[in-house]
Amino acid sequence: MVRIRGLRKRFGEKEVLCGIDMDVRPGSVMCIIGPSGSGKSTLLSCINHLERIDGGTMWVGGELVGYREQAGKLYELPERKVAGMRARIGMVFQHFNLFPHMTVLRNIIEAPIRVKRVPAAQARAKALLLLDRVGLADKAAAFPSQLSGGQQQRVAIARALAMEPQLMLFDEPTSALDPELVGEVLAVMRDLAASGMTMMVVTHELAFAREVGDDLVFMADGRVVERGSPRTLLASPREPRTREFLSRVL
């Protein structure tokens, strides 16, 4: 589903991704862990071209995202064309980023109606089903500011799912939540993984990675330091860098 080769990204002088190779199989869940500043979130932003890349290639569902290949070079596409490609990739942010001036329902149906031209009634019916799935059927008319962080993040997941994405990117989805609200969001993500969604999850929740993840990647300083099955990697890390990180967070 996702195939990344030699991905490079710089912010000014600082290289934040130094040649990343990664493969995510359809229907699998890849969790990415690592210290802050290791490039995990930037990697996700590159996948749906919220950030430009400075080198390497990246396919999602067999298609290049944000670029067109011609004679061995990648040409960046105009924003209008990139938008269509992004519609197939859902993204959930650390700070939810719900649209505060719209009701929960409007947040969910806005993109299907404006981008995919889904008829309003159909989008609405779909949105109510999704809200039911994330356990918020009674919050359709509420504004985001009236919800708890956990509820907002569940709405954000429903909003991304409304576009029927092939791939879901989660950028530290529980890092901004109060501890007692983390569980409800992880439960929704667990259900989603069980339903066969392909997911890439940047997280600090090692228990979630162990239980739900099919693959685990440990990143540091813009490089993949170690990868493997979550159980093996968490139980017996080979690299000293990984061991050091795990000893600090466990």
């Binding site: 924003e79 209008r80 942010f93 649209f99 909003r159 991304a160 576009m163």
Partner: peptide, 13 residues
Amino acid sequence: GQTRAAKALGMGP
């Protein structure tokens, strides 16, 4: 973050 979220949903400029 509002623009990022809207872009991620596939909305055009």
